[in-house]
Write a protein that binds this DNA or RNA. Structure first.
Lengths: 96, 96
DNA sequence: CTAATATGTCGCCGATCGACGACATCCACG
DNA sequence: CGTGGATGTCGTCGATCGGCGACATATTAG
């Protein structure tokens, strides 16, 4: 389960899943509701493609996106487990 | 670990993680390299925001995106585990 | 070789992006 | 009360999107 860090990663995943399901770009484009050329550019890793269309493409391929468990992989080891300031501010701002 | 299906889900996740880290929109925008207004619209769930900026935003928050394990959650129960046509086609097309 | 299919590339064009400044609102603080 | 910080909204503007048709390039089948 490779992490998705760049638009190129996304393109690779989409192309991979499309090929696995034996779909050509035309039919995938029809299912997603997008032009064939757009599929081409997405699979190339277009950085400025709209997230809405991207998410719909993934769903058309049956691919579900999730957030990796943060506690399992401490990105910043120096970060304190509890943030006192955050707690204080939360208490300072009662809901509504 | 909620699945991410819509741009609104994405916005909620971003806003949530930003607040958890006690960051205001201005500093997050500076870290990502975007305008403050862009953060506002992303957190509202803008569907046509560029994936490149979105991914950079998630990384700035220490959020890693992954693909949910397909084998664990069979989306289409009727789908065969092995796709013979796909295997045949793969054999038909030797790499390079 | 020819035909068919799949994929990649080009220019055109209306629609939208994302940055920026300015302004408005809300709320904690002095 | 007024001040400041955080957030949301409104125009404007150059840049880019995404769709479309047309063409180019594989790769495969007959």
């Amino acid at each position: 389960m490779p992490p998705i860090n760049t638009p190129t990663d996304l393109g690779a995943i989409i192309r991979d899943h499309r090929r696995r399901q034996n779909l050509d770009q035309v039919t995938l484009a029809r299912n997603v509701g997008v032009s064939r050329q757009w599929i081409v550019e997405i699979e190339k890793g277009k950085p400025r493609a709209g997230i809405g269309l991207v998410l719909r493409t993934l769903q058309a391929l049956g691919v579900t996106l999730t957030v990796a468990d943060e506690t399992a992989t401490p990105r910043t080891p120096g970060r304190p487990a509890v943030d006192l300031d955050a707690i204080v501010d939360a208490a300072r701002r009662p809901r509504s």
